[in-house]
Amino acid sequence: MLRYIKEFFKTLFMEFKGIRTHSVSFHTSAVVKGFFVGKKSIGVHSEKVFVRVNQVFMSPNAVLHDLGNKTKVRVREGDLIRNTCSCRDVTLYDLRDSVRAFNTYFQTVVISRNPTFRSKVNEGISYKTRVYPGNDMYHIRLMRIKREKKIDKNKVLEALAEFLSDYKENLKHFEFVGYYKGVPIGHVERISISKKDLMILLKKRGRNLKVDILLVKLKGMYKMIPVRD
């Protein structure tokens, strides 16, 4: 008896609790399988609308019609889906999601058909150069004075004779190197010999003094002998 009473109340409770209803939601998305662009028309075919009812996917065919002879297309929902599509016994009237998805895809195609190119114009050929002062640069103060090939024998011999008259050392260690004209000795900061040419590092300031010289080597040391005119 008690068992029957329990069954009764259980059933009654279930009845009064209300019918367990399942909310049905529709999610749709459109997939364009292909399209073609004519001279003045855009045709769309082989579309499918996937409809999800709760977690179940269905794919009823949806027929999307041509857009007509338009040179410029502005895609609207109504242009694409004019018909309703049926899914078993349920008629779906609202396919906004579907249309939105389709529109996005389709519009992208239209834009790519009418590209607008923008180009930045670059100045590619002009030249400019800057000029710098380089008065202190070492390279322009290093002057080469070449050994004279032709020498005035009288002048040279006279200068040598005068020098040797005061020279008391053995002439075995005496070596003539060369004769150089116009040596600016008033500006010499440093002097060196390179391949028998004089390399003179010029001072920025100096005396206005220029002489011809004889260069001799004495016991391995260079000696300059001025030559008078």
């Binding site: 030249y127 800057r130 008065n135 600016p184």
Partner: peptide, 17 residues
């Protein structure tokens, strides 16, 4: 006239594209 430098000026090296 003695060869003493009075002025020196030089440019940026240019490399054409």
């Amino acid at each position: 006239k003695r060869g003493i430098p009075i002025e020196f000026k030089y440019t940026d090296p240019l490399v054409p594209t």
